[in-house]
Design a protein around this nucleic acid. Structure first.
Lengths: 196, 196
DNA sequence: ACCTGAACACCGTTCAAGT
DNA sequence: ACCTGAACACCGTTCAAGT
């Protein structure tokens, strides 16, 4: 039987999987290409065939994170309830993802310092906002949200969503505060969106 | 004249100053203790007398950032205007600081992965919230903000504040979007705080 | 096409020793 | 008290060479 050679067909995917695991378990500081390669049984130079840089691997990780979060948010759009309920679902989905993937979320929104390379990440983040836009537009159609340019409402909503998740992840809000504060945040968002 | 020896009296402060400069100019990835020591004309082992760790230096940098932001926010509390105006001043102050200190803000809110060491940073972040609490409480007294537990309103407000600044820093919102969106954010916050 | 092995220039951290 | 110099164990990246 072959023991190794092409690793097992997909070193690139294996690197990403393993990297995310290390990120979650030991933090971003402990993420080393050489250790990754060691763990996967390839030479330390092998990863460079798939990622030109350590940063390129981190960017790919962040991009995958955005894609997963996007799916999670889209899936949270349960129908047939009030605007407030649907908004609550969105907030809960975002916060749950954030808490379950704290280090990854950090990575996703970290300033890249290379403007060119971060372009794809920025558009991925902006795509997330589309879910908020749809939700708000729907609320406007049903009369549960005040009129006006949808972005003027959806952008601040998304901003609150992200700020809350960010505080949860960074520990500024404790787990208890996040749980008990969720209702207050939703109430605050609705008051800011309600026609009157 | 003495050329060096105790550097020039305060290596610790010099390290912090220089580190922040490097952070701003070349990003967090380019921050190396050895290079810092070289720049300051001391041996590479000298910094360890003042910071047990590279992380300890980063923590000190973040803590100083919180203190400066706290001053900036407190100073933004101009009096004699409407609640909306004072809130607008707070948002502008936070966003201005964020844009002028993007990498530092990132560092301030980055997950530390060492729960014990990040305690001081978390309380520093929470102290920032006090400014929002005072502003909201004041609004409640003047009747410009709805009644109820002040934290139920101040926490979401602070959350929006931070989320907006975070999007500005990470580039999710372009400079133009930040400028033009500021009014919308304030309007959204006020609607969420207004008695009706 | 994909990977190895050696090489290069850098790190952070520690610790005896100096002043 | 504060710093130096040497040492140790690690990095990321590159590049000829192998299969």
């Amino acid at each position: 039987m072959q023991t190794r050679r092409y690793h097992h067909g997909d070193l690139r995917a294996a690197l990403l999987t393993r990297a995310e695991q290390t990120l979650r378990e030991k933090g971003p500081g402990a993420l080393s290409l050489r250790e990754l390669a060691r763990d996967l049984g390839v030479s330390h130079a092998a990863p460079s065939r798939h990622f030109k840089d350590k940063q390129a691997l981190l960017d790919a990780l962040a991009l995958a994170g955005f894609e997963r979060l996007d799916e999670v948010l889209a899936a949270s759009r349960t129908e047939g309830e009030t605007f407030a309920d649907r908004l609550g679902g969105l907030v809960r989905a975002y916060v749950d993802f954030a808490l379950a993937n704290a280090e990854l979320l950090d990575l996703m929104y970290t300033v890249k310092h290379d403007p060119a390379a971060s372009e794809a990440l920025i558009t991925a983040a902006q795509r997330l906002g589309a879910t908020a836009v749809e939700l708000v537009a729907e609320g406007q159609r049903s009369g549960e949200v005040r009129e006006g340019p949808v972005d003027d409402i959806a952008m601040p909503v998304f901003t609150t969503l992200h700020g809350f998740a960010s505080f949860a992840v960074s520990g500024v809000l404790s787990a208890e505060q996040v749980g008990s504060g969720l209702e207050a945040v939703i109430a605050y968002m609705v008051r800011g969106c309600a026609p009157r």
